[in-house]
Each structure stands twice: as C-alpha cells, then as structure tokens.
C-alpha cells in the first residue's frame, strides 16, 4: 500500500474518464469539485473485477464531499447541505485553490 495522494480537506475534481462498461462513478458527480473527506483504504479496481480480472493491485479510494448547491442547479435545501461519495484515485485530479 502506497501513501495516499490526497488528504482530508484537499480540493479535487471528479473526472469523467470516458471509460465504457462497469464503473462506480455516478454521472451526477462527474466534473464536480469537492474536498477529500477521508482516505478509505486501497481496494481492487471494480473496473477490472467486473470482467473476471481479479487479484490486481489495489488502488486508493477516497470519500469526496460535495456541496449540494454545486451538484444540482436550483437546489432548494439548506445552503450547507452536502453529499459524500466514494471515488477511486484515477477518477480524481487536484483542483487547486486553497485546501479547506
């Protein structure tokens, strides 16, 4: 297991890597910017496991926190409502800006 690339509070962008087939990054979260809530550990890549390619090197999984108002145009809940979801390392890029 290698050192996780991101730590809590780091700003990241969730990518759309355009990969067809089985992936675990919901469309609604792609292109959005959020912050790392926690590093969850390393897990085998589901994009390989789904096709019978088991036993590959585990990859880092992170919990990313997004503001609901950034996710949904016209979101009507409270301004600080958030959504968190799990994103694998290769679907993330540093977003720059100040860590929060």
């Amino acid at each position: 297991m290698s050192e996780p690339k991101y730590g809590p509070g780091d700003r990241v962008q969730i990518l759309d890597i355009g990969k067809p087939g089985h992936v675990r990054t919901p469309t609604y979260a792609r292109h959005k910017i959020g912050v790392i809530e926690r590093y969850c550990g390393d897990f085998e890549n589901p994009e390989d496991k789904a096709y019978g390619r088991w036993g590959g090197a585990p990859i880092a999984l992170y919990r990313v926190r997004l503001m609901q108002s950034d996710l949904w145009p016209g979101y009507t809940g409270a301004p600080n409502d958030v959504l968190e979801l799990e994103i694998y390392d290769h679907w993330l890029a540093p977003a720059g800006g100040e860590a929060v």
Binding site: G21, H22, P46, K49, A50, Y51, G52, W54
Partner: peptide, 14 residues
C-alpha cells in the same frame, strides 16, 4: 467460493 464477485454481478445487470 470466489466463483463470482459482486462487481461481475453488477456488470451483468448493467
């Protein structure tokens, strides 16, 4: 028994 994994099942559904 590691004959199937969850992600394979998810992929089949997809």
């Amino acid at each position: 028994k590691q004959l199937v994994v969850t992600d394979e099942y998810r992929r089949i559904v997809e």
